[in-house]
Design a protein around this nucleic acid. Structure first.
Lengths: 141, 141
DNA sequence: CTTTGACCTTCCAGTTGGTGGAAGCCTTAT
DNA sequence: ATAAGGCTTCCACCAACTGGAAGGTCAAAG
């Protein structure tokens, strides 16, 4: 299979697949013409990666998950560990976003949103003690 | 005021303040020794930026908000517009994360998490049609 | 036989929002 | 005199790609 085929089948852009090869997540063979030649197993890996990424796992998580995936003597506890840590991250991000949403929703409701210059949103931004809503830096990933 | 002072007072790291100068968000004066010399107005801007960033506004949003902030004849509708668009973004991210959380929570509960290799999490990653939980790419920011 | 168009290749740069570190002034205190 | 701390610039790096340029390959159509 050429890259276009696996791109269609895995759902990943060709660019992303090349990038994944660059960083060592897949290692397709090469045809004599220099084209990448993907096996079924490569396609499976790429679909795996797409799914894992869409669940928000980092590339580093994906690397570990792939390794466990290919290790038939793995312990499911190791996989669960990665997933649970990721869940903690997700929860933290959700909390952070909900905090932002609360504050912003409040401010938006306060603001007349008309032609006049008076704006509670700007007033808040200008005067609020920063870090009230989120002591850490904003959402990272 | 030197950069250390405004860093302490605004809550932003000095590095970030220099970066904000680079991208044109603040334009402090310079002392004869080459040190940046911040006015009260610069400090206010930086605190404003810190607050806006902590609410998840992009740098580009911040640029627009700052401009409105300094324009005494602004219409509050313009500010509200930016805030409301940002709220839509936040909502989308929350939804995406909640979807991920649901899927992952389910998988984690299914997984025994012991020494055995059988793992529903890996099975899902390997077989699920990707894009079920989130048709677009994972959470961006 | 050539040309068109779709694929494929590599490489370089840009994205977002900073952060880390090196090398080297400036200032103040000891 | 020198040490500590603050300031300067510049360059590189993070995640996870994405866009585009310049050029090779292949199959079908004229």
């Amino acid at each position: 299979m050429n890259i276009g085929d696996v791109a269609r089948l895995s759902g990943l852009p060709a660019k992303t697949i090349r990038y994944y090869e660059d960083i060592g997540l897949v290692s397709p063979l090469r045809s004599t013409n220099g084209y990448r030649s993907f096996r079924e197993s490569d396609l499976h890996k790429l679909a795996f990666l797409n799914r894992a990424r869409s669940l928000g796992f980092t590339i580093d998580d994906c690397r570990n998950l792939l390794q466990l995936y290919e290790d038939n003597s793995r312990a499911s506890a190791d996989v669960k560990q990665i997933a649970m840590e990721h869940l903690i991250h997700i929860d933290a991000k959700i909390d952070e976003l909900i905090e932002m949403k609360k504050t912003l929703t409040h401010l938006v409701h306060e603001c007349a949103g008309d032609h006049r210059p008076d704006c509670p949103i700007l007033e808040d931004l200008a005067t609020a003690v920063s870090g009230e809503t989120s002591p850490k830096r904003a959402v990272s990933n």
